[in-house]
Computed example of a mutant assay.
Amino acid sequence: MTDQADAGRTVGATAAQMGVTIRTLHHWDAIGLVCPTERTDAGYRLYTSADLARIHRVLIYRELGVPLDEIKTVLDAPATDATSSLRRQRDELRERAARLQQMADGMDRMIEARASGILLSAEEQIEIFGEHWQPNWTAEAHERWGDTAQWAQYAERAAQRTAEDWQQIAATVDALNTDLAAAYRAGVLPGSAEANTLAERHRASIDTYFDCPPAMHLCIARTYLTTPDHTTFYNTLAPGLTPWLSAIIHANAEATMH
């Protein structure tokens, strides 16, 4: 029995004091992790101050993610073995912390991308996409499409992209626009094999940002005729290019969907 200076505590009192359940203490007792040192004359378990100190250490290790069997090993092992085990657990925790930090950083980029649409400064955008590019376009797109699944998908992809990735995308789009203007000037007819190939390249360029099946591509092409920025942009490449581009996309989508 313990003396009054270290009067044993019952399972219920100990559970309440340490913030665990009675069932937990029974389990720890059963596996030999924390066994109450004392018993009453009637055979009831009593936890001493030393037992409470061990419970406190178990709670610390459990909070750090150390499995119960390893906690027992650490607590019962000689000092040298315990130190080695703790160092191993520390290294694993640091690795886990690093992974969690990477995930948190990724979430930050995702949040920022959902709001801004592109993780580049205005100066970087103009440098990469050219002088015709208006940095406010993404803000306008977010205001119009920010609640759509397509914008969410665009933001997810944008969050992973570097300036170099955007440069590659911009180069691909520039090459496509050059070929579109050249085909239009050459009189390529909507519905022809050459026109359909260009339409598919155009759809693929949109597919870079979010999934763009032919039906959606057709809807986007229709907006080119009513959205001043798009109309002006394509007609700047070649006067009359905008309606021709809409026409070749329409013809290709109709052929693809039927």
Score class of each variant (00 low, 15 high):
L119P: 06
D76A: 06
A238Q: 10
E143V: 01
Q134G: 00
P190D: 05
R203W: 01
V34F: 05
A13G: 15
I111H: 07
E254N: 05
Y209P: 02
D207R: 07
A139F: 08
G19A: 06
I220M: 14
A97N: 05
R88G: 15
H56W: 08
L33K: 10
Q153C: 09
Q89D: 09
A199T: 01
A238E: 11
T73D: 11
R39Q: 12
L68C: 02
G106T: 07
H230D: 05
V66H: 00
A97Q: 14
R144M: 13
P67T: 03
G130V: 05
A50M: 11
G187M: 04
L25Y: 01
H258V: 10
Q89N: 15
Q153H: 08
A5T: 09
S205Q: 10
E124R: 06
A50I: 05
G187F: 02
K72H: 14
P135D: 07
Q150S: 13
L46G: 06
T10N: 08
L198D: 05
W151A: 01
A82N: 08
A53W: 09
D105P: 01
V173M: 11
R54G: 04
R23W: 05
C219W: 05
T227K: 10
T148N: 08
A79E: 15
G12P: 07
A170K: 03
L180E: 07
F233E: 06
E63G: 15
G32Y: 03
Q101M: 04
L119G: 01
A15V: 06
T178K: 09
T40A: 12
E112I: 00
W137I: 15
W28P: 04
T236P: 01
N252M: 07
T231N: 15
L241G: 00
S85V: 10
T242W: 01
A5P: 02
G130Q: 03
A181H: 00
D41S: 15
L119K: 04
G187L: 04
G240W: 06
I71C: 05
L237A: 04
D6Y: 11
A195G: 13
M107Q: 13
T231C: 12
E131W: 09
M107W: 12
V11E: 05
A7H: 14
A204Y: 05
A104K: 08
A175T: 11
T242V: 01
T37D: 12
E123I: 02
D81L: 14
A251G: 06
D41N: 14
A238F: 03
A238G: 02
T231H: 15
E254M: 13
A7N: 06
T14N: 08
A215G: 09
T14Q: 06
G187E: 03
I220K: 09
D51V: 02
D51Q: 04
T231Q: 14
L241F: 02
L245G: 01
E156F: 13
A238D: 01
R54T: 10
I22Q: 14
E140P: 00
H132W: 11
I118N: 04
C212T: 15
T208Q: 14
L225W: 02
A16P: 03
A238R: 04
G240A: 09
A97H: 11
M1N: 09
A204S: 14
A255V: 00
D108F: 03
R23M: 09
A13F: 07
I111V: 15
E92N: 14
A113Q: 10
T24V: 10
A53G: 09
L245I: 10
V74Y: 01
F129E: 02
T148C: 13
V188Q: 11
I169H: 14
W166A: 00
I22M: 14
C219K: 12
D165Y: 05
G191M: 03
